[in-house]
């Protein structure tokens, strides 16, 4: 089914690093027979199958759902987390957005808090620990009231959903000059700040999550806005502003 008439060629300059303690370097690979409908990761699949067939070590990268929702994939493509197309994860990016003959540089999401596991795969478990510190509503299964007994305005629900859509990919950290995870943390804080269910723990949540954020070694926010620009779910940095306001209020109250 694949046609070669519109095949594209690329030079891929890829970060190779054997393990967390090894030093890495950029290595060039050539691929041809790439068609415009392919996703960026499918192009890497083609490269990897070629490398495997030649008995060479394939490039380690991570991905799962390949439809932009699981947050597993994430590459810095030509210096931009998730590549040139706004509002798109790496897996959703198609090769028609590149020109045949391009040299494409591919690097991992870099941050001290995201140690490299191998090649393009990084450890983002620090995000889980931020959520564990308070990114939820605390109540035990079985004790919930009827769903319609707590009314939530359409606007509040909408607003909350805009933040809740964060997929935890880590692009915001990779793009930030301070390697801050404020957009990730802010999105979670904002989601609950906007709805009644989030109110009882509002102060404690923001205090605990920010404390953990800082302990994990993520930097502070200095309003560059790079995070918002690369966020595949286009989460607004107003979530950071809300988080900082909530943090201040909570600090004064406790």
């Amino acid at each position: 089914m694949s046609s070669t008439s519109n095949a594209m060629k690329f030079t891929l300059r890829i970060w190779r690093q054997k393990g967390p303690k090894d030093s890495g370097k950029l290595v060039d690979y050539k691929v041809d027979d790439i068609i415009p409908e392919m996703s960026f990761l499918e192009m890497l699949d083609v490269l990897n199958e070629k490398l495997a067939a030649e008995g060479k070590d394939p490039v380690a990268f991570d991905s799962d759902c390949r439809e932009g929702i699981c947050g597993t994939c994430g590459l810095v493509i030509n210096g931009i987390a998730h590549g040139p197309l706004a509002g798109t994860t790496t897996c959703g990016l198609r090769m028609r957005h590149f020109r045949s003959g391009d040299v494409i540089t591919i690097e991992p999401f870099r941050a001290d808090s995201f140690p490299i596991i191998k090649d393009l795969v990084v450890d983002r478990t620090a995000f889980d620990r931020i959520v564990q510190a308070g990114g939820y509503v605390s109540f035990n299964t079985g004790s919930a009231p009827d769903a319609n007994s707590v009314l939530v305005s359409k606007d509040a629900s909408h607003d909350s959903m805009d933040a809740a859509t964060c997929i935890g990919c880590g692009a915001c950290v990779a793009a930030c000059p301070n390697a801050s995870a404020h957009l990730f943390t802010g999105a979670k804080v904002y989601q609950f700040a906007k709805i009644p269910q989030g109110q009882p723990e509002r102060d404690q949540r923001v205090l605990n999550m920010i404390t953990t954020h800082d302990k994990e070694g993520f930097g502070d926010c200095s309003n560059h806005g790079e995070c918002e620009a690369v966020c595949p779910k286009q989460i607004n940095i107003k979530t950071i502003a809300q988080m900082r306001r909530d943090y201040l209020v909570a600090s004064l109250r406790t």
Binding site: F139, S143, A144, P145, A147, V150, V152, S157, H158, F192
Partner: peptide, 22 residues
């Protein structure tokens, strides 16, 4: 029936009507 109650209490942002119901 319990699942929807559970998820709503967790703050899952379900779609809502203007009156605030699900």
């Amino acid at each position: 029936l319990n699942i929807i109650d559970q998820a709503a209490a967790q703050g899952v942002p379900f779609a809502r009507e203007y009156g605030g119901t699900l």
